[in-house]
Amino acid sequence: MAKNIQSLERAAAMLRLLAGGERRLGLSDIASSLELAKGTAHGILRTLQAEGFVEQDPASGRYQLGAELLRLGNSYLDVHELRARALVWTDDLARSSGESVHLGVLHQHGVLIVHHVFRPDDSRQVLEVGAMQPLHSTALGKVLSAYDPVAHSEVMEVERKAFTPRTVTGLADFESMLDHARARGWAADVEETWEGVASLAAPITDRRRMPVGAVAITGAVERICDDGELRSELVAAVRDCARAVSRDLGAQRF
């Protein structure tokens, strides 16, 4: 025990104290229960408070457990919550871009499609919710690999299969592609997964800037690209949508 860090032990004891019995305690109660000097106890409480693990009731000055603890317990964002929050923004993106929109999350070494908005024309389209896409070749997969460390380690393990002559399979090339995506904040797939099809994706982050998913538009390469370049207004539209959903998650979770 001697090698443990004393202030962390004291902080843990305080959290346990606040979790049991009376839920709100004053500084002197906490200090005397743990046999600490008031100044020492206050310093630890202030630190816990700054991290959100403890909150102080402004009226009574008493301390209680903070919302951050709750968040640690449920840190994963429900994908159906993500879809509900994204609904209006993704409809808007489909309308303004004229292309289909997909929302994807990391799932079992691939991208799980959790939401799909049809391309706004009268053509017959099939809902792709529940489908999987590869991590290494799609725009959604690249964005997730670039921003989510778990996705990154998974994409390093999977076989990076060549679906078309344009699929990037070599490790160094792939890593530099992810660097590029991180640098500009979005990723593309120009005929790297399907011949004739291009897509553009941007990351969705929660209030702590953790990547929780990605949003993409997908369409015929002739419409997504102009003279071999990705059309900048489409890039802007996808990034705007991702930002709007991220803002919604940040503003309203807890």
């Binding site: 409809d91 489909a94 908005v117 049809f118 706004p120 009268d122 389209q125 809902l127």
Partner: peptide
Amino acid sequence: RANWRRAAEW
């Protein structure tokens, strides 16, 4: 009617 756009169909 021409304005109506299908976003999804089950």
